[in-house]
Each structure stands twice: as C-alpha cells, then as structure tokens.
Computed example of a mutant assay.
Amino acid sequence: MSGSMNIGCACGATRLAVAEDPIIVTECVCDSCRAAAARLATLPGAKSLLTPYGATPSALYRKDRVEFLSGTEALAEFRLTPDAGTRRVVATCCNTPVFMEMKGAHWLDLYLHLWPDASRPKPDVRTMVGDLPDPSMLPTDIPNLKSQSVSFYAKLLWTWIAMGFRYPKLDIGEKIDA
C-alpha cells in the first residue's frame, strides 16, 4: 500500500491522508476494545466496529504519517472511564469512530472501516485473545495471539526510534459519553 491514501468517516466530512504502509494491521479482542466498541455503537447513526467474532480491526500508523485534511472540528474523545489512559476519537458529524490512542503513544490505531472496501488493509494478526472466555471460536486465517508479541513491540520501538523519540500530540477538545 506504499504511497498516500485518503480515508474518512462515513459521511465524508472528516478526511485523513495516511502516508506509506502501516506499522501493523491488527484485530484486537481485548476487553477494553470490545467494551468501547459496544458503547460507541449506541451513538445515534453509529455502526459497530466489531467483526462478527468481536474483534476491533485497526491499522497502526505513526502519528507523523497521518494528516487530517478536514473535519477536525467534529472530532471528540471518548474514554471508558474518566481517568482511562486510552481514548477513542469519534467524528461526531456521523458518529464514526476514527482512531484509538494510548496515552504517550507515538502511533494511532486507525479503524479499518475508514478505508474503502477495495483498499482496506488486511489484518496481519489477532491480538489479546487471552481476554476471551473461549478463543476457540475465532477464525484461524491469521495468528491468534494470547497477548501482544515481542515482534509487535519491536515494530513499535523501531518506529519510535525512526521518529526521533517524539510523541506528537493531538488536541481534541470535545468529549462525548456513550
């Protein structure tokens, strides 16, 4: 997928450009991602982020390779609890979840439904299957990892080094509750 691609929310008001390939493409089944996806799906007009087996697909991109082209005024953050270190950011124009960001992270987890079907990145791995009561119901099309792998953390470290150990900050002023 090298190069640049424009992606965006369901109504098209919030647009982003992503440069080059993602760090990794995952399907997360951790308790936090599943709970947040379930709550965000209750917003008016929102669609579920979850796959039929309860995973949240996303592409991890360096923050310096994501450019917001339009619609930043419609972005609002959602946290599972007020003091949660992880936030999900939603385009309130159509209640489309856009990304997940961990506190102090140098990357964003961009939700895969932002891409058109034909150009949507394919997941490399399913993570955090140890959080599921019965992970045997998951498909076996990609590796199902109990937690994050050493290679996952190595990729994140390598990108942080390549970014000069920077943590670009994204200011999102509005907050929503779901």
Results as ranks from 00 to 15, higher is better:
A74V: 06
R166S: 13
L43Q: 11
K146P: 00
L145D: 10
L132Y: 03
P133I: 08
V18H: 06
T140L: 06
A41E: 13
K47G: 15
T51Y: 02
N95R: 11
V29S: 12
S147R: 15
L145Q: 14
A162I: 01
N95C: 13
D31I: 04
A19E: 10
G71Y: 02
T140W: 01
V129M: 07
N95H: 13
S149A: 14
P135T: 07
I161W: 10
G8V: 07
R88W: 00
K169S: 09
L112T: 14
N6L: 10
V90W: 01
G164K: 04
R62C: 10
V18D: 07
N6T: 09
R88C: 06
V125P: 06
R166C: 09
V25Q: 11
C30W: 00
D177V: 08
I176T: 00
W115S: 13
A76Q: 08
T26H: 03
C94Y: 03
C30N: 02
Y111E: 08
K122C: 06
L132M: 13
P52C: 09
D177P: 02
Y53K: 13
R79P: 01
F99Y: 07
G12L: 12
E27R: 15
L112G: 12
P116L: 11
H113M: 15
R39L: 14
V150R: 15
C30E: 01
F68R: 13
L50C: 08
R120K: 15
Y61N: 03
A10S: 14
R34W: 00
L112W: 05
L156S: 07
G8E: 10
W115F: 15
L132Q: 05
L75E: 05
L110W: 03
L50R: 08
A74T: 11
G164D: 01
S119C: 11
L43W: 05
Y153T: 08
A105K: 01
G173T: 00
A19H: 09
E73C: 10
D141H: 07
P168T: 00
G45Q: 13
E174G: 06
R88N: 08
A10C: 09
T26W: 01
S48H: 04
E77S: 14
S151Y: 00
P139T: 11
R65G: 13
L50N: 04
G85D: 04
G130C: 10
A38F: 00
V129K: 06
D21F: 00
H113L: 15
A17L: 13
P44Q: 10
R120A: 09
R120D: 10
A10F: 04
G8L: 11
D131L: 09
I142E: 04
G71L: 10
W115H: 12
N6W: 00
K155M: 08
V129L: 04
D177N: 12
F78W: 00
M100I: 08
P44H: 09
P22T: 09
D109E: 07
P116D: 13
N95L: 12
C9V: 02
A105C: 03
T86K: 05
F78E: 01
I176M: 05
P143V: 12
I7C: 07
H113P: 11
G12M: 13
A38S: 05
Y111F: 12
S70G: 11
K169C: 02
R39K: 15
G164S: 05
V129C: 11
G85K: 07
A13H: 06
V18P: 04
A84W: 00
G8A: 14
